[in-house]
Design a protein around this nucleic acid. Structure first.
Length: 142
DNA sequence: GCCAACGTTGGC
DNA sequence: GCCAACGTTGGC
């Protein structure tokens, strides 16, 4: 299983919005960046991801999973843009802030730190476990 | 609201 | 194919 990180501005699409969609999930549309799209193409059903609030909050607030693999983005007619669907799995009991990520030497190479502007990012298994631990989650249970 | 980083566009 | 101009993202 692979791990990812999804960024969203909470005033546009928040963790609460995602939670409200429940098990059916929601299209992760609006991505207009090739790198981000290419990562979504690599995603498989059941892959896990962090849900990160950018701009407001600046913290990892939830765990999501990929519930539909790559398909055309319904918000555009441009065939270049595709996306996956994700659904909420669990909230993070103690949201992990960007500040805390930056302060943790183990996470110095995380894309969140090194590729600040990328809106869909891969997360290494060790980083996944570390952020889960910081958030108060057992990595084995999510 | 500012501005740095960086991706994209378009003229040549 | 280069590179300057421009637009967007996102932390601060």
């Amino acid at each position: 299983m692979a791990y990812w990180l999804f960024k969203s501005e909470p005033n546009k699409w928040s963790w609460e919005d995602q939670l409200a969609k429940g098990k059916s999930g929601e299209e992760w549309d609006g991505i207009r960046n090739y790198q981000a799209r290419n990562f979504m193409r690599e995603m498989k059903l059941g892959d896990r991801g962090f849900f990160y609030h950018s701009n407001i909050g600046l913290e990892v607030v939830g765990i999501v999973e990929v519930c539909k693999t790559i398909h055309p983005d319904s918000t555009t007619d441009d065939p270049r843009w595709e996306c996956v669907d994700i659904r909420a799995v669990a909230p993070v009991p103690n949201p992990v802030t960007l500040k805390a990520v930056k302060a943790n030497p183990k996470l110095a190479d995380m894309s969140l730190v090194t590729s600040m502007r990328l809106s869909v990012q891969p997360v290494k298994p060790a980083e996944w476990a570390e952020v889960c631990r910081m958030g108060g989650l057992d990595p084995k249970s999510v």
